[in-house]
Amino acid sequence: MNMTTNSTAAAPVIEAIGLQKNYGPLEVLKGLDLSLERGEVVALIGPSGSGKSTFIRCLNMMEIPTGGTIRFRQKRVGDRFRDKGEDIGIGTLRRHVGMVFQHFNLFPHKTVLENVTEGPIVVCKRPKAEARELAMDLLAQVGLGDKHAAYPAHLSGGQKQRVAIARALAMEPEVLLLDEVTSALDPELVGEVLAVIRGLADKGMTMAIVTHEMAFAADVASRVLFLDQGVIAESGSAEDVILNPQNPRLQGFVARFRG
């Protein structure tokens, strides 16, 4: 392995540098740094209100940070939709950084298949037949090949979330952001969604995951960040952060989930 490939491999796909977010006088994020390398799975844990959702939503500019920078492929992300000069546009960023939401947000007026082909056809301008083929492939991967003609209203929560994951994957993203994707699910449906995510991790998908599933985070994440009151209070391997917490607030937090 020569120096060049070595440095490319180590180069972060997406970075947050000194990220801040205020809502008026309320400081939600107080200068956070994160650098995600290709193939890395980072889990963000922390009490509600700690800023972890806001943080992950800043990574694809769903929330516009009030301070700091997002860099994607070593280029600064600007504040416009389109690329401008050296800056990458928000639209370009989102095309390569997928997001899955807590409440699925499937398009209710479109079938499962149309939900998945919408991005490739409308945003990437791919031919319809090709997008369809890709979508059917992805739906099969998440175990919903037979549901392609159904409307979202006829699916269970777990099925909806798996369609949402397929929809994000159809953009062939370099990074996937998962924002509490199992929090709105009935307990018995959590497993099927986590299994899909674990499969993605095994295939080397770069992911940032906000979750309350401690066991899952410990299992799938290469790195765990504990957010507390708008700062990264602890970060390290799953072993260090979840199984052997040092920070007293983290100890309390993890203990509650061990229950």
Partner: peptide, 19 residues
């Protein structure tokens, strides 16, 4: 969330509104 989901797959505000 509908607008957010459309934005998240890279749609412009106009595309999100129309589609």
């Amino acid at each position: 969330g509908q607008h957010e989901a459309a934005s998240a797959i890279g749609m412009s505000p106009g595309q999100s509104m129309r589609r």
